[in-house]
Amino acid sequence: MRRTWWIYLIGVLGLVAVAAPFLWMVLGSFKTQGELLRVPPTWWPNEPTNQNYADLFSKANFPRYFLNSTVVALAVTAGNLIFCSMIGYALAKLNFKGRNALFVLVMATLMIPGMVTFVPLFVLVTNAGLANSYPGLILPFLVSPFGVFLMRQFFLGLPDDLIDAGRVDGTSELGIFARIMLPLTRPALATLGILTFLGSWNNFLWPLVIAQTEDKYTLPVALALYSTGQNAQNYGLLMAGAVVVVVPVLVMFLAFQRHVTKGIAITGLK
């Protein structure tokens, strides 16, 4: 095993390259403006300060954006868990007319670039009077083709005998789905839940066009507008804002990472 040390060295160097910008961000969020502009840059904050985080509350309305992001992400996640599992179950286990056509349609929409649906969706949502509202931010994402595909693949792997046994016992179709089959898909639901939450939390383009007043901004929208607006030079504030956007999902990802990587392995998609 004399070769191992340099393999680990490459691995660690890679890890440093990936992690360094994150560390730089966290350390930078505790630096003063003067220190952030210093040449050459400092690595560790010389005079650590909480001022940047205090500014997130006083100069900017970050608690509100945080709340918006959380509400939207939770609603979207709940919707996906309910609807994707239902459609996935129907596509995998129920026989109905047009099932294959519907599945082909789902797969086709997986491949269509987001830009294609972007404009008509905007027209649709605006005409429904939902621009700049929570429903406008949430509704278009309640069902995702990815989620349907993931749940279908998982339901396909469950034996039909369970359904037949339920029918023999006189359980209703809804009961079979909700009480027998759904509990068995817990690993897939965990994967879908975490991936949906992360996706919604990081979603940027749609909230950017739909959230038009400050009280509807999600965190990424607010951070993007701050980093191009009049606060563009307030680097400490931006660093602290970036920390607030990134840290919750990192914590969540670290807690559930097993489910995330498993989901990618099942479907091959992120």
């Binding site: 840059p41 939390w201 940027f204 965190l219 660093m239 970036a242 956007v245 990802f253």
Partner: peptide, 30 residues
Amino acid sequence: FKVGYYLPVVTSIVAIAVIWRFVLSPDNGL
């Protein structure tokens, strides 16, 4: 290592942009 290498994938692009603008900044960038 696996989790470490995967971290950027789950990070908001907006936050990444804020960080990378510093990394790439001409005079005092990383």
